[in-house]
Write a protein that binds this DNA or RNA. Structure first.
Length: 226
DNA sequence: AAACCGGGGCA
DNA sequence: TGCCCAGGTTT
């Protein structure tokens, strides 16, 4: 048996399709943000490292740290060779420095054994150290060009406000939210569609002070700010 | 399912 | 001051 709480309905799919189309147009017209790691030709090494740096950390903060980090650690080998204490000290301005240092070192060790490549199956990716659902999706998208959503608090907030709230507390375990996010990126360039959602979340559909007045999809949105 | 990590940004 | 941030791991 499938309950409405766990299955994405037809009406919900239609709403999400329209939302994605509008966000894609907005992004194409230059409405989104620009970050160093979005530049064409950014190596997979940088993309994977950035995902670790972005965890629980504002993208703007990571952007200001980007040049420093990759000047000091240009490749997997530099990361693997650095003493963990040095890496920890280097990461302190970002916070979560102990965990991040461990994650980056584990990833560097993995990359060294696999020639800088990662698995192309979701289940295998989850076995890689420091790789959870979000990073696994990111790797599938960036390395293999597959159509996966970057399901983070931002995408979750946009989808939940626009359609309806999730049932489970944890984003990563809510089946309805998973389907909704996957549906949201069903068409268009996977990277651009994902970025358009994240940028809409950061600029307009903000966590604390959402700008529903200037939101161009507010007429179809289930969420109304006070 | 909930706790934990953590410094910085912002109201 | 208190909440929030492109999560993953441990309990």
């Amino acid at each position: 048996m499938s309950s409405p709480d766990t299955v994405l309905g037809t009406g919900e799919k239609r709403k999400l399709t329209l939302l994605a189309a509008d966000l894609a147009d907005w992004y194409r017209q230059g409405g989104g943000r620009s970050f160093p790691w979005r530049e064409p030709g950014t190596p997979l090494y940088q993309l994977v490292c950035v995902e670790v740096l972005l965890q629980r950390t504002r993208a703007e903060t990571v952007a200001s740290f980007y040049h420093r980090f990759f000047t000091r650690f240009p490749g997997w080998q530099d990361l693997a060779e650095a003493p963990v204490e040095v890496l920890e000290e280097f990461l302190k301005p970002l916070g979560l420095w102990k965990r991040r240092a461990a994650s980056l070192r584990a990833l560097a060790a993995y990359a060294a054994k696999h020639d800088g490549m990662f698995p192309n199956r979701y289940e295998e990716l989850l076995q890689v150290p420091a790789v959870g659902q979000y990073v696994a999706h990111a790797i599938l998208m960036f390395q293999h060009g597959e159509r996966f959503p970057l399901i983070d608090v931002n995408m979750a907030r946009v989808v939940e406000r626009f359609v309806r709230p999730r049932k489970l507390a944890d984003i990563r375990h809510d089946p309805w939210l998973q389907q909704a996010c996957k549906w949201l990126v069903r068409r268009g360039d996977p990277k651009k569609v994902n970025w358009s959602v994240l940028d809409h979340a950061a600029l307009t559909c903000r966590a604390r002070n959402p700008d529903c007045q200037s939101c161009f999809v507010s007429s179809r949105c289930a969420f109304k700010a006070a």
